[in-house]
Write a protein that binds this DNA or RNA. Structure first.
Length: 308
DNA sequence: CTCGATCCCTGGACGC
DNA sequence: TGCGTCCAGGGATCGA
């Protein structure tokens, strides 16, 4: 799942590979994940890719203006990889992978291909004020923000810390894996309310989050099932996961089996010993489960989740 | 403001 | 082997 470290890895790879190249033409297949497919076909051909940057979980292909038009309007192709998106340059001769939806022919004989089985990604060509408005919707970059700013964005929020970490309008770039890993490192249960965390906890979370993101970038991200970088290589950080996808396995700090619960609608992995639940959380959860069981009497037991 | 529910989509895991 | 069912997961959106 591409989160900040994975997208950063792809952005660096693409910057190396395709910055300075021009797009000759665009071919679009399925387009339901593209904001305005027509604008890509109209605006991209003939444009040079100046730089490739990461913005939260988006790839930002910043484009040079056409020579004739004097306007100095900023423009970019935004690409969100969703869950299964891949963006990589390939030789024209290479067979197209299944689920290839966008192909951009480049001026060096290669093609920049977007492949996305589930199409949970997003693509949009944006320029000028529209681009600025779109970028302003998102929160601060967790690697650029200072502790005071981070604290301010969390403190005074009544949502659960897990929800806040995942909210791209609060912080841009954090997803489920790095939220859980950071909370484990900082010993904070995902169901705690942001407003209830003290200065020490927030400082610890800030350091944990930055440290984990930086290390994950060095290791070129986590490859759980689909992620590949711009060169088609998987990342290595999944070998360093302490809680994510480790349900039932021992916490590396205290050997307590890692558990998985739903917090803020997302599965959340944590150590019940190192990360103590907030007051009332267990009881509220049990009550909710009982209510669900009453609503659906035939679904009392689900498939046993065996550990890998 | 915050919550849960719902939808989007497909491959993979699982039960039979 | 194959078919049906469930599920993951980021994000938008809607109603409570």
């Amino acid at each position: 799942m591409p989160e900040l470290p994975e997208v950063e890895t792809v952005a660096r790879g693409l910057q190396e590979e395709i910055a300075g190249r021009s797009i000759l033409s665009v071919t679009i297949g399925k387009s339901d994940f593209i904001d305005d497919p027509g604008s890509l076909e109209k605006e991209l051909p003939g444009r040079k890719i100046r730089t490739v940057e990461r913005y939260g979980k988006f790839l930002l292909l910043r484009l040079a203006n056409r020579e004739k038009a004097g306007a100095s309007e900023e423009s970019a192709l935004l690409v969100h990889l969703g869950m299964t998106g891949l963006l990589m340059p390939r030789a024209v001769s290479e067979p197209q992978a299944k689920h290839t939806h966008v192909v951009m022919q480049l001026d060096d004989g290669r093609e920049l291909r977007y492949v996305d089985a589930r199409r949970f990604g997003r693509m949009a060509y944006l320029a000028g004020e529209k681009l600025q408005t779109e970028l302003r919707r998102f929160g601060v970059d967790p690697l650029e923000t200072r502790l005071e700013e981070f604290t301010k964005s969390i403190h005074g929020r009544r949502a659960r810390i897990k929800a806040l970490l995942l909210d791209q309008h609060v912080l841009r770039g954090v997803g489920n894996i790095y939220a859980d890993e950071s909370l484990w490192k900082a010993r904070i249960h995902p169901a705690h309310l942001g407003a209830r965390l003290n200065q020490g906890q927030l400082a610890g979370l800030y350091r944990a989050l930055q440290g984990i993101l930086r290390k994950a970038i060095v290791l070129r991200g986590s490859s759980i099932s689909d992620f590949l970088d711009a060169e088609g290589m998987p990342g290595d950080y999944q070998r360093h996961h302490r809680v994510y996808d480790r349900e039932g396995k021992g916490c590396v700090r205290c050997k307590t089996p890692i558990r998985r619960v739903i917090v803020a609608g997302r599965s959340s992995y944590f150590c019940p010993q190192c990360q103590r639940a907030p007051r009332g959380w267990r009881k509220a959860r049990q009550a909710k489960r009982a209510k669900q069981a009453r609503a659906r009497p035939n679904s009392g037991r689900t498939r046993s989740d065996n550990q890998m």
